[in-house]
Design a protein around this nucleic acid. Structure first.
Lengths: 342, 342
DNA sequence: CTGTTAGCGCCTTCAT
DNA sequence: ATGAAGGCGCTAACAG
């Protein structure tokens, strides 16, 4: 199969004029006789001509393409971020090369190489849960390709980042549980590799401390976000001699799983045990009971990150500032902590 | 900002040998002295060299990139299809250029031009709800760029497609409602522009006919998939003189909205009115009551579509066969039609 | 085994 | 206002 895309040469031949003139006409160069221009444009349209961005990119050393690397596409979070990012990119005439790495470090590295080989003008990155080595991203920095992290950021790189205040949000979530009268609050934490896990854990601990509650290691379970394991952990927690009466989960899918398991155990939510999630996923308002959670401005994260990235690209490498934008979160109180009279 | 990506010339200079030798070493050509190759490879690694795919694409007239155009990223359906498609593409060394058009025809056309300009080797397409003109896709066909439709296919183009048997699935769904004793079954249909809407509607009608139920136009509401409108339609249906006791919704988000509204009206599900959706979205098993729906093999749709596309690309244009792959669906019975004793 | 040359499609000087 | 020539980074064909 050979694709016969129309080229400038085809148009030039068709009109018996030089390629340069065609090129000028197509790019809107002023020094082209109006009738020539119109003739060229007409033929171009007729022949379905599309500029070959490859050759242009080769010349300009710019592809007008931004790479976006995210860890997964299972939950609605990352697709929504991408939508926001794409929106801003499109406004500025940029395309987007998306890849999700299934939470695999190997794949993340491989995908980053693909981005490099395809000469993206910049990258938007959220790390996989396995990523502990950042050399592949440092390479971008070294090559002068701007990089902006969001959500799952790399703390040891001084580049722009878009985050929410995970510490504060977790603090609010746990404080809310305390204020509803819960005394023993467990935390299903994320993997230690992710900064967001650590920050949310800190928020959890500090909220307990503020109210003079002990930080009980038995009630803190770090896990690798493999949802199927939630069942085991919840069961374990419920069978403790002194089981928790509240759970703060690292994210909504975890919380939703937890709710399922708790219900199967015949316990009442929130009376026996209350649950709070993080991120306000699509499903969270529908489950029974509806999930109290922290909402993040998902699309806005995408928009902000892309905005920062495009700003960066206008500037000299030396002027890149590692700005950190922190977006607002909000505690959404639903039935999994406070039963509405409804 | 200038990105200083290493080139073959840099390596050649560094080693004082010719570019062609470097190129050969890098591409694994056999006729290179092993020590030369190793030297090249070592320097390449050291200098973070990545082959510039742009120039290679320019020469080979292949970009090793597949475009994927989907109508939206709000529901989990399309992101999941993309995951499946990407999986197969990656296996064969292809990248993926994704764009979602927010259900806008204009954006779909614009995005298709971007794909053309970026010389994708093929495209995977699911149409926006507004698309009624297919010229932009016919252009691909004419230029010899293979195209495979999935889910929301273009019926008037003879190209490969991946679908489920929407007619049969809708039939099963409605038959199920009938078998649970429902007598007046309404259908919240999709826009007429989409073939899937029409097929599901046909399945609905034929199921009614099979059981000698009248097809009542008052109970069929076609809408444009704007979720916020569901409230109005459901309210309208419930206030009919002779309201329905069952609803078959075009998709799960619609069904979930419907359930919310019905509950707010104080009606019992499924006793007063039963609801069936379509697609088995992530949220559907969590809502209260859980949603009876048709499950589609989402990732498999993506895998199959990408598989077909890659097959196409190995063949001469003349040999392209408009294969239509129909994947299996399954009726998932949950509490919105049959209350479990639980 | 290695070096030289031409050219992919386009844009950008330079020349006319 | 137009044409001709050079080059972006790389590979392939053609010499040595």
């Amino acid at each position: 199969m050979k694709s016969h895309q129309t080229t400038i040469i085809d148009i030039a031949k068709h009109l018996s004029i030089s390629k340069s003139t065609v090129s000028r006409a197509l790019t809107g160069h002023p020094s082209v006789k109006p009738e020539t221009r119109e003739a060229v444009l007409a033929v171009a349209q007729e022949m379905d001509y599309q500029r070959n961005m490859l050759s242009i990119s080769l010349i300009t050393n710019k592809t007008k393409t931004i790479g976006i690397i995210v860890p997964e596409f299972m939950t609605s979070f990352f697709p929504q971020v991408v939508v926001g990012a794409q929106e801003i990119a499109a406004q500025k005439g940029y395309n987007v090369l998306i890849s999700q790495c299934n939470e695999s470090y190997e794949t993340e590295v491989a995908n980053s190489r693909v981005m490099l080989a395809n000469r993206v003008d910049g990258v938007l990155v959220s790390l996989s849960k396995e990523t502990r080595n950042f050399d592949h991203w440092k390479t971008f920095h070294r090559k002068g390709i701007p990089i902006v992290f969001f959500n799952r950021v790399c703390e040891e790189m001084a580049v722009p980042k878009v985050v929410v205040d995970d510490y504060d949000a977790a603090f609010k979530a746990v404080e809310h549980l305390i204020q509803t009268g819960k005394k023993r609050i467990a935390h299903l934490a994320g993997p230690d590799s992710l900064a967001i896990s650590r920050k949310r854990l800190n928020g959890y601990e500090d909220a307990l401390r503020k109210y003079n509650f002990p930080v009980d290691e038995d009630l803190i379970i770090s896990y690798d976000l493999t949802l199927s394991k939630v069942r085991i952990y919840i069961r374990h927690l419920l069978e403790l001699e002194n089981p928790p009466d509240g759970i703060f989960a690292i994210n909504d899918p975890t919380a939703i799983e937890a709710i399922q398991v708790i219900k199967q155990h015949g316990l009442r939510i929130p009376e026996d045990i209350a649950v709070v999630g993080f991120s306000n996923n699509y499903a969270s308002s529908f489950i029974e009971p509806s999930l109290t959670t922290i909402s993040q401005p998902v699309k806005e994260i995408g928009r902000t990150a892309m905005g920062l990235l495009l700003d960066l690209m206008d500037k000299e490498t030396a002027l890149w500032k590692p700005i950190i934008k922190t977006l607002e979160t909000e505690l959404i109180v639903r039935n999994s902590t406070v039963k509405k009279i409804s």
